[in-house]
Write a protein that binds this DNA or RNA. Structure first.
Lengths: 215, 215
DNA sequence: ATAACAATGTGAAATAAATAACAATTTATT
DNA sequence: AATAAATTGTTATTTATTTCACATTGTTAT
C-alpha cells in the first residue's frame, strides 16, 4: 500500500529513464559486469550522474560506496517497479512497415510484455504469422482483445484510420494505447494514451540544425 | 538578429507543439477552414487553450478577437519559425522495415525536408529506388552526404551497428541525427542528437496501465 | 593509524514548463 | 447605446524537473 502510492508519485521522466537504465544494464549484465557507477550509467544515457542517483533514490535503491550499484539487483528492482507481475499482452494494429518493424523489434525482448496478436484490414495479411505473432482481421478486434486478455495496443494504421481504430479499441476495453499514427486521437481519461509522431521529431532535429547555423 | 535570439529561447516543448499545430492546421486548411480558435487547436492536441495561446505568443503571432487565428497565416508563420529557408536534405540509414516505413511516411509530406538518399549494407537493396529515394551502399556514406548536401540523418540500423554508423555520420560532417536504434550513441556537442526508443514508450504505457489497476 | 580520494545520498536551489487569473476587446443581442 | 458573451494576450503563480552543494562513508595509499 505504501509502494502503490510511491509508484504513482514517480516522475514521468524517471519512469522513462528507468526503462532506459535497465536496457543498458541488461547489456552490462550479459557482458558479465557485476557493478556499475552512477556516472557510467549517466554517460551511456547522456545525462548527469546526479540525475541517475536521484532516480535510484526515488525507487529506494542503495548502491555501495566505491563499488557502485549491483547490476543484477538493479535490473531486478527496476523490473519490480515498472513491470506488471502478471505480464501484459500487447496487440499491434496495422501491419504495414512500421507494424512489422515493431514486431521484429519487440518479440522476445521483454518477458513481461508479449505481443500476442496483430490486426489488419488486408485479406492477404490476415491469417499470416510473423515472428510467432498471428494476424487477425480487424473485425475480430473486440473478440480477440477479450479472448487473449490484451491490455495494450500499438496503433500503426494509416492516419485516416486512426480515429475509428482508437474508438474500436476503447469500445473493446483496451487499457493503454501507444499511437504511432500522425493523427492525435481522443480516448476517455481512464485509458492511458501515449502519442508519438516521427515528423515532429524530424522537424525538431531540423530546427536545431537550422538555428545552429544562425550563430 | 532579434529573431535569431528569440528562436534559441523558445522552449523545446514549444518547438514540438508548433510542429504538431502545423500538422493539424494543414488539415484544417485543406478542408477550407480559414480560422480556428485556441481551444479548437488545444482539443486536437489534448492540451489546454492557454498553452496554445502562450506558444503563439512566444512566436509573436496575434489572432483576432472573436474570429481566432487565421489558419493560413499561422501555417506560414510556423514555417518561418521552424523551417529552414534553404530546405534541409535528409538521409535514412538502414532500409529495414522501419526505414521503409519512414520513407513511405515522409516522402512529399514537408517541402522543406527532403529525403534524398538511403543507405544499406545489403547488396540486394543497394541500387533500388523506393518512393523516389535511391539506396546507396553504406560505403558511399561520406561521399553522398557531401555530394547531396545532406544535413540530417535518421538512423534505423540494427542496434549492433548504431555506434559505428553514428561515428561514420559524424566523420562525414552530419549536423543532426535522429536515432531510432535502441542504443544511445555519442556525438560531439556541436551535432544535434535526438534519440527515441520504442521499447521505452511501450514500457511506459504498460507501467501506467499497471498502476491504474492498483487503485 | 591517518590522510586523501572517490563514490553515494539528499536537502536546497535553480530552471523549465504548465496553469491560473484576469484585463482587454470585439461581436452579437437587446 | 448598453449589455452580455466569448475570445485573445499576458502577468503571476504553481508544479515539475534538474542541478548544485555538500555531508557521509568506504577504500586505498602512506
Amino acid at each position: 500500500m505504501k509502494i502503490e502510492r510511491d509508484l504513482k508519485n514517480l516522475p514521468h521522466k524517471t519512469i522513462e529513464r528507468l526503462s532506459q537504465y535497465r536496457r543498458a544494464l541488461l547489456i552490462c549484465h550479459e557482458q558479465g559486469q557485476t557493478h556499475i557507477y552512477s556516472h557510467e550509467i549517466a554517460k551511456i544515457q547522456h545525462i548527469t550522474a546526479v540525475q541517475v542517483r536521484r532516480d535510484l533514490m526515488l525507487i529506494g535503491y542503495s548502491g555501495t560506496l566505491r563499488k557502485g550499484y549491483n547490476v543484477k539487483d538493479l535490473i531486478d528492482l527496476i523490473g519490480e517497479i515498472i513491470d506488471s507481475k502478471r505480464g501484459i499482452n500487447v496487440a499491434i494494429i496495422g501491419i504495414g512497415n512500421l507494424g512489422r518493424a515493431l514486431i521484429n523489434y519487440f518479440v522476445g525482448k521483454r518477458s513481461h510484455l508479449e505481443i500476442v496478436a496483430s490486426f489488419d484490414i488486408n485479406p492477404d495479411k490476415i491469417g499470416n504469422i510473423m515472428s510467432g505473432v498471428p494476424c487477425y482481421s480487424i473485425d475480430e478486434l473486440a473478440d480477440k482483445i477479450h479472448e487473449l486478455h490484451i491490455e495494450v495496443a500499438i496503433m500503426t494504421v494509416p492516419a485516416d484510420f486512426a480515429t475509428q481504430t482508437a474508438d474500436a479499441l476503447v469500445a473493446a476495453g483496451i487499457k493503454g494505447i501507444l499511437n504511432y499514427t500522425p493523427k492525435p486521437v481522443n480516448v476517455p481519461e481512464t485509458i492511458y494514451l501515449e502519442e508519438y509522431d516521427m515528423i515532429t521529431s524530424l522537424e525538431k532535429v531540423a530546427f536545431y540544425v537550422k538555428i545552429q547555423d544562425l550563430n
